[in-house]
């Protein structure tokens, strides 16, 4: 059920889009109103989530230390895995964001006969994750040819590189195949590895199916069903310049593609896909491990409350402490005899 339900949800989205593309006014709804709505939800949602996260104080330095911390001068520090400087943290974050370093450390545990537990490195998750993410980036950037006029040089360069093999017409983009292949791996990994399947939820399968749906409809649209690109660019450019119009015949497959993309944009801020922003904000990665070098003050401390040392505490309550037979470090001062006599007289 955890796999079937998200699949059904995506199929329902496809059917809704197919119906909407045929109904009068449906094309404007899916092609114009929904993209604006989805884009607004996406931007607003991401900002909301980031601000929400940022409103949680992180009073303690909690970086995951994956190597030797800064210590005595003759002990070699692992500057990237346990950074004690800002430069180290920046290096760590760059490697994490651009090269997915933490996935590279992925390990697997296997039980062999004996019984013998064996740990080994497992790089496939890293490999397919990085292929997937970079292909997705290239694909999104390539789409800028539809939203920008004149087309920026880097978009044209990306398209040229991506279609470098000059297979068929319209020319075949390598990223399309790698993208779907990597997605298939990420999906198969969840259903074939029993321990991964056990912890996989609908929220893991749904984005996979949704992104697969987007990829498949895009590939169908480009290579198999084919649509009027000029009419689509007019619509996309119209969306970007706030004057959208739908003219000409655009195939229904385009509206399915757009509908799924809108669903992804709306789903994005409220799902695990927010790791896009989260990777920058995870305190276990972006904090400097300098607990013992710098004094970190809890941000919610009330500045009106001054530090209260034990010595001053005892000064304040010495009389009561002595009265209750609690040992004190400094005895009560011996009181002058005259005063004592006066007290006794009272």
């Amino acid at each position: 059920m955890r796999i079937i339900n998200p699949l059904i949800a995506v199929l329902v989205l496809v059917v809704v889009a197919l119906v909407a593309a045929q109904v009068p006014g449906g094309q404007a709804l899916v092609g114009i109103i929904l993209p604006y709505l989805a884009f607004a939800v996406f931007l607003g949602g991401v900002v909301y989530r980031v601000v929400y996260w940022a409103s949680s104080p992180v009073p303690f330095r909690i970086p995951t230390t994956c190597g030797q911390a800064n210590s005595l001068p003759w002990i070699k520090q692992n500057k990237l895995d346990c950074p004690s400087t800002k430069a180290g943290v920046i290096g760590r974050m760059l490697l994490e964001v651009f090269l997915f370093r933490s996935l590279f450390r992925n390990t697997k545990a296997e039980m062999h006969e004996g019984p013998k537990l064996v740990y080994g490195s497992s790089k496939f998750l890293w490999l397919f994750a990085i292929l997937f993410h970079y292909c997705f980036l290239v694909i999104v950037l390539r789409h800028m040819r539809l939203f920008m006029d004149p087309i920026p040089a880097f978009v044209a360069a990306l398209e040229f590189g991506d279609g470098f093999m000059q297979i068929g017409t319209p020319v075949f983009y390598q990223t399309d195949a790698i993208f779907l292949g990597a997605l298939a791996f990420l999906f198969l990994r969840r259903i074939t590895l029993t321990n991964i399947r056990y912890i996989s939820l609908p929220a893991d399968y749904f984005p996979l199916f949704l992104i697969m749906g987007i990829g498949i409809t895009g590939i169908l649209m480009r290579y198999f069903l084919r649509v009027d690109v000029v009419a689509i660019k007019q619509l996309a450019l119209g969306l970007a310049t706030l004057s959208p119009t739908i003219t000409g015949q655009i195939g229904a497959i385009f509206f399915v593609h757009v509908f799924l993309v809108c669903a992804l944009l709306i789903y994005f801020p409220f799902s695990k896909l927010m790791h896009m922003a989260g990777v920058f904000m995870s305190p276990t990665r972006n904090m400097i491990n300098n607990n013992r070098m710098v004094r970190h003050i809890n941000p919610w401390n009330d500045p009106k409350i001054k530090p209260h040392s034990y010595a001053s505490y005892e000064d304040e309550f010495r009389e009561f402490m002595v009265g209750a037979d609690i040992p004190v470090e400094k005895e009560l001062p011996a009181q002058p005899a005259g005063e004592e006599a006066a007290k006794a007289a009272e």
Partner: peptide, 15 residues
């Protein structure tokens, strides 16, 4: 994210 909006795109009606 909104760069296509700021980008000085030509007239969208100009097919």
């Amino acid at each position: 994210m909104t760069s296509p909006m700021w980008y000085k795109s030509g007239d969208a009606g100009k097919m």
